[in-house]
Design a protein around this nucleic acid. Structure first.
Length: 570
RNA sequence: UGGGGUGUAGCCAAGUGGCAAGGCAGCGGGUUUUGGUCCCGCCAUUCGCAGGUUCGAAUCCUGCCACCCCAGCCA
């Protein structure tokens, strides 16, 4: 099944980490089930997002831990909204996340014949009937949350008539909406989903899998439990909003001659601060051009996170850390970013890049001299080795790393102050060159040749180490900086007359067209990830990059104590 | 106002009658050629509220309050 490195697989399997694992452990221990089978059942009507990742990690994870298996099953019972474009993206995303369903790829549509047979079975048992009321009339008969519903006048049709009508529905004799097959349960049931729910509707539309074979399609409430039963799913894990449907789920399983009895267990779906998870709303962002597409790096879709530079390991780690419970909750985005940085810190190579360049001339460095300095690739991983970085008389430093009148807690470069250039030399600022508007255009500094490599033989200290790039050797590239797509931690928190679009962050994308990168970055391939020292983790964008002309996305910033100090000062 | 759920720190989350795990965030300190990482320390006398049972209650009982879900021929 999963072939990724199992960082957490050493966790004591005998101590369940959540209520679902506790239930499963009991069922396995009691012998109720000999083998665990779970399933991930997406409807192919959109792209997968980080919320789906929680479900995927849970379903595949719990099976793996217990020597069980997981099916990937497309819940494709509504051809009006589904397509193969979505099934393909879903398979790609599940694979990317690191999970393998093997030969267990299924579709609810694979079971249409069996489902139809069981619908006929229910009719024969007097437990289903064809209703010919209009959709609106059915709604009127349903009652309300506090009042019972009323029986449809068609509820007492004979079994023979129901059989005939249902067969003709299937044969295409009726237009959409003319009839519907309903389970005969109890129109006065306090649980509205038990008030004779529809189980088949007429839809003259071809299906992405079954083509034009059918013009009637089963409803979720009917198809899902029975598909689970057909596949002998032992534990059917879904989100809280289906809790109301569980009695119905069980009713179908109990009233059809199924080969196994699955158990539905509900858990809270993932909510993330500064993020929306609704497929409908994400689609709106795409359709209205607020983002670049489903895989825009600011989107919470798996394809968006992937393009942004997130790793599957980090997403899995996040899903494992947040746990599984029944209480509605909103996880802070910082939690996701922690898992990301945790991995990238260990694995990403370091590089130097200057986003907002300020020219610096080392006045006592020989005009035509150049040298190659050794730079460690990853201080967290000696195996990553080192590289050479060119140094010369003219350099670029980050503008924010110099202040003419530094406040007390600023310990980077300032007039007369000495700092270290990473892997290079100590330099001291001697002059500040300004243009006619008083803007700083250049700095003059001197270097101490004895500090080559960054160590001072006399043991003197500097309070800051800055990243830099040799001007002559710098490689120009576009760098895209991302911020929260929404300004409010709760995007839905808006004034009376507004919707979530009101909270869109106008500064969620900041494009730097000419960042100065160290030359080793010029040949970076799409998807390449590294840390730009002191700035954050970046990756080569898969959409805008061209051979020899990489465009970088900022995946996430580094934690920044100085930024925190500045923020507090305000 | 019917039914189904859920309330433990700023955010997640264990805990199931024996004296409030862990993570994130935050704060303080140490190390550091990234103001990163790492390390150390602090961060709930109290578990939605009020009663009750008990030697002992976040855990059991009663009542109340708050929030979420359900009236698709969506899933």
């Amino acid at each position: 099944m999963s072939d990724h490195t199992e960082r957490n697989s050493d966790s004591p399997e005998h101590t369940p980490r959540d209520f679902i694992r506790t239930i499963i452990a009991e069922d396995l221990e009691s012998g109720k089930h000999k083998k665990l089978i779970t399933r991930f059942p997406p409807e192919p009507n959109g792209y997968l997002h980080i919320g789906h990742a929680k479900s995927i990690v849970l379903n595949f994870g719990v099976a793996r831990e217990n020597g069980g298996i997981t099916h990937l099953r497309f819940d494709d019972t509504n051809p009006v909204k589904e397509s193969t474009e979505y099934t393909e993206s879903i398979k790609e995303d599940v694979r990317w996340l690191g999970f393998d369903w093997g030969d267990r790829l299924h579709h609810a549509s694979d079971y249409f014949d069996q489902l139809y047979a069981w619908a006929v079975h229910l009719i024969k048992e007097g437990k289903a009937y064809v209703d010919s009321l209009s959709a609106e009339e059915i709604r009127e008969h349903r009652g309300t949350m506090t009042e019972p519903g009323k029986n449809s006048p068609y509820r007492k049709r004979s079994i023979e008539e129901n059989l005939d009508l249902f067969e003709r529905m299937r044969a295409g004799e009726f237009p959409d909406g003319a009839h519907v097959l309903r389970a005969k349960i109890d129109m006065a049931h306090p649980n509205i989903s038990m008030r004779d729910p529809a189980i088949y509707r007429i839809r003259h539309i071809s299906h992405h899998m079954s083509g034009d074979k059918w013009c009637i399609y089963p409803m979720y409430d009917f198809a899902h439990p029975l598909s689970d039963a057909i596949e002998k799913i032992t534990h059917s894990l879904c989100t809280l909003e289906f809790e109301n449907n569980r009695p119905l789920y069980n009713w179908f399983v109990e009233n059809c001659p199924v080969p196994a009895v699955p158990r539905q267990i509900e858990f809270a779906r993932l909510n993330l601060s500064f993020t929306i998870m609704s497929k409908r709303k994400l689609k709106l962002l795409v359709d209205d051009g607020h983002v670049d597409g489903w895989n825009d790096p600011r989107m919470p879709t798996l394809s968006g996170l992937r393009r942004r530079g997130y790793t599957p390991e980090a997403i899995r780690d996040f899903c494992e850390r947040i746990g599984v419970a029944k209480r509605n909750s909103v996880v802070e985005l910082a939690q996701l970013e922690f898992s990301l940085r945790d991995q990238l810190n260990r694995e990403a190579d370091r590089r130097m890049a200057v986003l907002n360049p300020l020219k610096v001339v080392i006045t006592n460095y020989p005009e035509d001299q150049e040298e190659e300095l050794d730079a460690v690739n990853n201080p967290e991983n000696a195996d990553a080795g080192s590289r050479k970085v060119p140094f010369s008389r003219e350099l670029y430093l980050e503008r924010e790393d110099f202040m003419e009148e530094p406040p007390k807690k600023f310990f980077r470069l300032a007039p007369g102050r000495e700092v270290r250039l990473r892997y290079a030399y100590f330099i001291t600022c001697t002059d500040v060159i300004k243009d006619e508007n008083g803007e700083i255009v250049e700095l003059h500094c001197t270097y101490d040749p004895a500090t080559k490599g960054g160590d001072s033989p006399d043991g003197r200290k500097v309070k800051a180490t800055l990243h830099w790039v040799s001007a002559k050797h710098a490689f120009d590239a576009e760098v895209r900086l991302y911020d929260h797509l929404f300004m409010n931690p709760d995007p839905e928190d808006v004034p009376e007359d507004k919707n979530f679009l009101h909270n869109l962050n106008p500064d969620s994308l900041n494009i730097i067209e000419h960042a100065k990168l160290e030359p080793s970055l010029s040949s970076s391939a799409s998807g390449y990830r590294c840390q730009f020292e002191r700035l954050g983790y970046f990756c080569v964008d898969s959409r805008y990059s061209e051979p020899g002309k990489p465009v970088f996305n900022r995946t996430v910033t580094l934690r920044d104590a100085w930024a925190k100090i500045q923020k507090q000062a305000k």
